[in-house]
Design a protein around this nucleic acid. Structure first.
Length: 137
DNA sequence: GCCAACGTTGGC
DNA sequence: GCCAACGTTGGC
């Protein structure tokens, strides 16, 4: 079992939309580090969903339902997509300000490299974020 | 709207 | 292979 965090601008694709859709293709990633993280995702892994630009909070948990395959939106280059399904909305969004202030979350990509869109989490980091979100899975 | 951080591109 | 220039992301 691995733990991840993905970012999305909510006006492009929100967690609420994922709840409505039931499943979505996570495509359009054009960064090698993020792509390699996508490729390391296994079916059943947990994936936290962060709203960037607006919201600035982790808002829910998703799960990987299909492992990586060629990104159909890529006209050139070696890019990958995965499929995600929603698992649970956070009881309370976990705001970036609290994440940045949390001693156990100083090492996550969200804090250290604000621009990475798909990043791994340790189990402890994942748990700390669930606690901030007052959510159990 | 500004700007810092980072990744990519391209000239040498 | 280095590095300057440029573009993009994303928080503030």
């Amino acid at each position: 079992m691995n733990y991840w965090l993905v970012k999305s601008e909510p006006f492009v694709y929100s967690f609420d939309q994922l709840l409505l859709d039931g499943q979505t293709r996570w495509d359009g990633v054009r960064n090698y580090q993020a792509r390699n993280n996508l490729r390391a995702m296994k079916k059943g892994d947990y994936c936290l969903f962060y709203h960037s630009n607006e919201g600035l909070a982790v808002v829910g948990v998703a799960t990987v339902v299909r492992e990586f395959y060629p990104d159909p939106t890529a006209e050139q280059g070696d890019w990958s997509a995965v499929d995600l399904a929603p698992l649970k909305a956070f009881t309370r969004p976990a705001p970036l300000a609290e994440i940045k202030a949390h001693p156990a979350l100083q090492q996550i990509g969200l804090v250290r490299n604000g621009r990475l869109s798909v990043m791994p989490l340790t189990f402890d980091e994942f748990s700390a974020l669930l606690t901030l979100g007052e959510t159990h899975i």
